[in-house]
Design a protein around this nucleic acid. Sequence first.
RNA 1: GCGAAAGUGGCGGAAUUGGCAGACGCGCCAGACUUAGGAUCUGGUCCCGCAAGGGGUGGGGGUUCGAGUCCCCCCUUUCGCACCA
Length: 834
Amino acid sequence: MNPVYDPQQIEAKWQKRWAEAKLFEADADPKRQKYYVLEMLPYPSGDIHMGHVRNYSIGDALARYMWMQGYNVIHPIGWDAFGLPAENAAIKSGRHPSEFTFSYIDRMRAQLQRAGFSYDWRREIASCVPEYYRWNQWFFLKMYERDLAYRKKSRVNWCPQCETVLANEQVVNGCCWRHETTPVVERELEQWFLKITAYAERLLDDMKELVRWPERVLTMQQNWIGKSIGTFVDFQVDGTGEPLRVFTTRVDTIFGCSAVFIAPEHPLVEKLIAWSPDPGKLRAEAERIKASAVRARVEVDLAKQGAATGFTARNPYNSESVPIWLANFVLMEYGTGAVMAVPAHDQRDFEFATAHGVPIRTVIVPRDGHLPQKLEGAYTETGSNGKLVNSGPYDGLTPEQAIERMTRDAEAQGFGKGTVQYRLRDWGISRQRYWGTPIPIVYCDNCGIIPVPEKDLPVLLPANATLTGQGQSPLARVPEFVNTHCPNCDGPARRETDTMDTFVDSSWYFYRYTDPKIATAPINREAVKYWFPVDQYIGGIEHAILHLIYMRFFTKVMQDIGLVDFPEPVARLFNQGMVIKDSAKMSKSRGNVVAPTEMFAKYGADTVRLYMLFAAPPEKDLDWSDEAIEGAARFLGRVYRLVAKYAAASAGVRAAPNAGTGAELSPEERRLLRKAHQTLRHVTEDMEGRWHFNTSVAMCMELANEIIDLEAAFRSGKVFGGVFTTAIEHLVLILSLFAPHIADELWEALGHAEPLLRVPWPKFDPELAKEEELEIPVQINGKLRSRIRVAAGTPEAEIRARALADERVVHHLNGRQVVKVIVVPDKLVSIVAK
RNA sequence: GCGAAAGUGGCGGAAUUGGCAGACGCGCCAGACUUAGGAUCUGGUCCCGCAAGGGGUGGGGGUUCGAGUCCCCCCUUUCGCACCA
């Protein structure tokens, strides 16, 4: 055995061995309990980054632990291979995006392999190959059949940097999610949408299955779906008979309605302009309001602006006519684009009314109280503390009662109805870019929109498109692609030239892993039945809404078309923190990027991985430190030298392992075994529960320190070789979760033939882990005054007597009267004296 | 503005249920071995104090024999939502 730790040599050796032994290959086996560890698949950008290393080190520790616990572990990886960066690189260089993509995949695969992650590489997938993306097209057709994919002209978010459309989920603070400083602009385009809104209720409802998901992810998704229960009320524009429908969640306040606000884009606006005595002025006002509207979300606190239209609308509840205003804070895309204004009971309306002189009328008051003459702000009580006034037949009801009764009355009289509204919008998937899945649709002059028949899939992405990155879809300039025959009438037809959002690719990839090559269907139902659900999914919080809601949506569609028989694909989700440096996210522009490959070359993968797990608990951000990683390297070096020295010197002694308990053990031996089992207990509990790998690694360090401390005792014969061996073997075995290469190397040096992944995880012995003698603190009036040594389990009375007899305690009591003595066995003694 | 999480040595972080604050590591100090050390090993390292002792977990109050942990108020940071009617 090499006396010097050489991670490069050891890691290469074991990676080769593992591959030859097919150590990480798992096949469905009904006789064995399965476990599915999934990490978010990387985009092939060229090199893996520290965030990947962290994410995958966590997953790898878990996968290895589950293997050692005897599970049949599926642990796959693949490539989210379509997308803009490759296309942009291609535009710059004149080469094809697939060239970049595949060469990057090769490079990053080698880097992941260099890290020694326990992936079953037979299951690798890449979303940019026809064998994969044809099934995106297949899902699209299934959704089209069920009216879940549809085309409509709509105002969409356009990122001028990406030169393409973005989904609502991809707009963050008014900017593109990939270009955080580029505001999105609006465009009117014909777009394909997936009807995720049809699943809004189920996406909400099934959250009750997601008990092992982080609360904040569920909250974010809930907010994103934004369900609210309310009422449509049909006003009428006076003198025209034109209906004007508003949506409200507070119909109970409608007797306090003193205006109707409409969005500047509301279809009624054009009509009002036409009817207006001064159309020019009204149009100008509408333009002004539109320009100041909420749409420009980059602005945080928008002043409330409005313009009176000169028209009034009649409130069907009390036949009162109120003015119609254009208002910049009313959103066209939510509800009906029109709201009733109740300044007394809605803060926004209150602000607007105060600024623009709209009357404020109180219709809800505290049940046993009054409201001030002049309100400071809106009174928004909705519960039984409030009651209705000035509301005709509804006076005296609580807001809750009133909402129910008034909605019922509106329905009975035909001027309104109860409704549920969602913030969630349908998912726009059309992208005017090349490097994505072609949308399998054909436009025929005779037959209209015709889906490509299933048997004609895949619609291949043409290899020869010219990429300019400007505006239109590149596919539109490839005549051989565009021009086709109608599947229906065989007449000339044109293909859809947009490609799909790449989030479609990642909405179902984890199913494909279970049978990555199946050519007859997107997924193998039998394989999915065995392997699903994903037991543990690990990835960054940035996907809390985007990917994690799309993926849930896809699974529900798959359930509806009979592909799977469960509503949720992922049982447990974990979001790891980011890797940062100098308290900022690593980025090329900041120049604070630490390349994993360089660190692997300098320290070895084991050290980097150990450090990733040790430096912070996994859910927190981890600030990379060039110095602190040295500590991880030093630790592995010490363990290596410990075992190397021991293996060389004591071949005879370690042939007699003895991990038994009993009186024959020396105090040193008991101490060593205790530490070994405490470490095992800690790590086992950590893996099963809290996932504070940083403390697990710390425990390994403590165990190593203890062993090194007792090395002399071992040499002098006070510690029997068997016990020493047991302690070292425990250390190496536990370490294999975090630093697998060195662990296998040392395990082999200790005389074992099997790699650690195949060694059962030992059960800790609670008896051995127990402390036998304790030092417990004695407090007098809350201050620590002494410590007494007692055997574990000493009865209360004895502890009490020992504490009171303690020399230091007697000294500190100084004759004062003992009022009370609290003894917590094995923990502490607290004396109250006066 | 609303909601959530967090605030502990010079630094990363320990302290599952209220019970010795600072485990483990980094850094730093001293020493050993060395031609040398950015290798390795040993010891030390919350603050004040020679000591006895005192103080200490963002600030202030409270509950308790006992509070980093529970309660109230305030401050700061991070994240999410921000006109969704």
